[in-house]
Design a protein around this nucleic acid. Sequence first.
DNA 1: CAAGCTTGATTACATCTGTAGTCATCACGA
DNA 2: TCGTGATGACTACAGATGTAATCAAGCTTG
Lengths: 129, 129
Amino acid sequence: MNSTEEPVHERITEAELAVMDVLWQRPRRTAAEVCEEVCAARGWSPATVKTLLSRLVQKGAIAAEPDGRRYLYSPLIERAAYVGGESRRLVDRLFGGSAASLVAHLAETEALTEDDLAEIEALLKELRP
Amino acid sequence: MNSTEEPVHERITEAELAVMDVLWQRPRRTAAEVCEEVCAARGWSPATVKTLLSRLVQKGAIAAEPDGRRYLYSPLIERAAYVGGESRRLVDRLFGGSAASLVAHLAETEALTEDDLAEIEALLKELRP
DNA sequence: CAAGCTTGATTACATCTGTAGTCATCACGA
DNA sequence: TCGTGATGACTACAGATGTAATCAAGCTTG
């Protein structure tokens, strides 16, 4: 169990992430449907969504299932895996690989509320009986 | 206390971060000194370090104090501030702003080692006697 | 003083990213 | 059947990023 495993997909960018989020929410959507979800919020044109979908397919992050003359797009990677990878990356880059340091930092800078702390404590009890 | 404050400096990139780390470790270093610390490790030429230093100065992330015909470079932003901003960004982007979710995720995906867990537990004891 | 080394400034350039336009084609309705 | 709208493929293009070379000017040492 080391933290240096390479992901099978290439790096997902900020803009692409918005698209992934839509597909994680519900897969098998058309480009138009994805656009409905994000174009307004991000001020994108439909063309932009199409580009991002293409790039995500190329990167191996989503699948394009033919459906008539269009595609239904679905994530190929799970959100949890992506999120885990990103978190790991952050911890490696900024906290010397120590997740505990990250938690410590969050606590010190009061990024963690009392509720957060309680929740984490509960979590720990579960993980280390 | 909201989480939308803008940093005064522009975004620091991955490569630039390596340089920042050297300067955080010890400020007032010359380009050559910085290179000594990172060029080997990252396979960089001295020119690369100079470029990164220039960009960091432009971005307002470091100061260049004249010293004879060269400069001594020092961070203008604190490491803790940077790290906090990045953590915040991650939590916002991927965990809907909930830091506890991040910790929960790390725990669930076993990104946390037994040691990490013990350390966090100790931290919590301290924070919530 | 001259030859060379050090150093920042400037320039270079490929790739990635954000954002979008164009175009050919195919299905569908009049 | 014919126009029309939807759709993906391809193209575009500016700005960011990684990585570095070149160049001019000063310092240094013989």
